[in-house]
């Protein structure tokens, strides 16, 4: 144990990785929770892949000399905002199905664009694009951490301030508008800030893991926890634990920390479903026994005995 702590203290990679794990857990708690509430979990995946398309565009613009100052991360952020805005526009009336279609279309578009641009990007930079798909939490630099931290803080503050509004938009968009709340503004704010956070988290842990970390803990918590605050807190814990175990395992065994964290996050959802099922079974058993109150049982017994007496007389 002391050895591990010494390694952590002496290794800046590990320090950054641990810090990133906490930040990604914050993003999952703030953003993943509300995406799951809105039935928009797919957007986490859509935005993560759009970030990949944006990165491809950024590298292309840099390498082709068209816009040399264009950092690939700008492309990722730009694309994720576009996906969020497009999704938001499709869902202004508060209908989730329309938003899911919008996410699907932008997902397909940005992935196609990424593959298209790959043919025009020098081969040595292609792995950078794929890096967005798999990600490596151990390879983050200081700039990545600063970016991730600023969005996590921004997202955290916005969620603390406007969590009621985000909940109201998710629960009853129409009613919120009719009561005079600027639901449209909160609707877009929630989607765009989430998208920015997802794009930066994608760089840290990869598109596939972002989806696992953002969605699975939130879905798991939503099965079991019965208050909004409780869900947010529980998502943070599950996400953090999954990532920490992933990091620790990667020291003991030769394995990608992201892969372990993703598997654990997904397992948490399966476990939550099982717990819920067991809980429901216990509850119905209790209800069944309480379904027959004493007076009803008595009436039932009386009716049986009367019937039996009747039969008895009949035989005579």
């Amino acid at each position: 144990m002391i050895d591990i702590i010494q390694v952590i203290v002496s290794s800046p990679f590990l320090q950054r990785a641990l810090f990133a794990a906490v930040l990604v857990a914050v993003i999952a708690a703030a953003s993943g929770t509300f995406l799951v509430f809105r039935g928009l979990s797919f957007m986490a995946s859509g935005v993560a892949h759009a970030a990949l398309g944006g990165t491809a565009l950024g590298i292309f613009l840099q390498e082709s000399g068209l816009v040399p100052w264009f950092d690939p991360i700008l492309g990722a952020l730009l694309f994720s905002i576009l996906v969020a805005a497009f999704t938001g526009y499709a869902g202004e009336s508060g209908i989730t199905q329309k938003m899911e279609v919008a996410v699907g279309v932008s997902f397909a578009l940005s992935m196609s664009l990424a593959v298209f641009l790959m043919y025009y990007i020098p081969p040595y930079r292609v792995p950078q694009i794929w890096g967005y798909l798999v990600g490596d939490i151990l390879l983050l630099n200081d700039f990545d951490i600063i970016m991730l931290m600023s969005t996590a803080v921004l997202l955290g503050v916005i969620t603390l301030m406007f969590n009621k509004e985000f909940v109201y938009v998710s629960v009853d968009m129409e009613g919120s508008v009719a009561h005079g709340m600027n639901a449209r503004m909160y609707h877009y704010a929630m989607l765009i800030v989430s998208a920015l956070a997802i794009a930066l988290a994608t760089k840290a842990v990869g598109a596939i893991l972002v989806y696992a970390i953002l969605v699975a803990p939130a879905a798991a918590s939503n099965e079991l926890v019965k208050s909004v605050r409780g869900v947010i807190f529980s998502v943070f814990l599950i996400a953090l634990i999954a990532e920490l175990i992933g990091l620790i395992t990667s020291f003991v065994v030769y394995v990608s920390p992201s892969a372990i964290a993703g598997i654990l996050a997904a397992l948490s959802y399966i476990l939550a479903l099982q717990i819920r099922r067991v809980r429901e079974r216990v509850q119905t058993e209790i209800e069944e026994t309480s379904l027959a109150p004493e007076d009803l049982v008595e009436t039932f017994n009386q009716s049986i005995t009367i019937e039996q007496k009747g039969d008895h007389n009949h035989e005579h």
Partner: peptide, 15 residues
């Protein structure tokens, strides 16, 4: 305003 009941999203753990 109270919209039609099925307009209220039940996926959010509201009390």
């Amino acid at each position: 305003y109270v919209p039609q009941r099925d307009r209220i999203e039940l996926a959010v753990p509201m009390k």
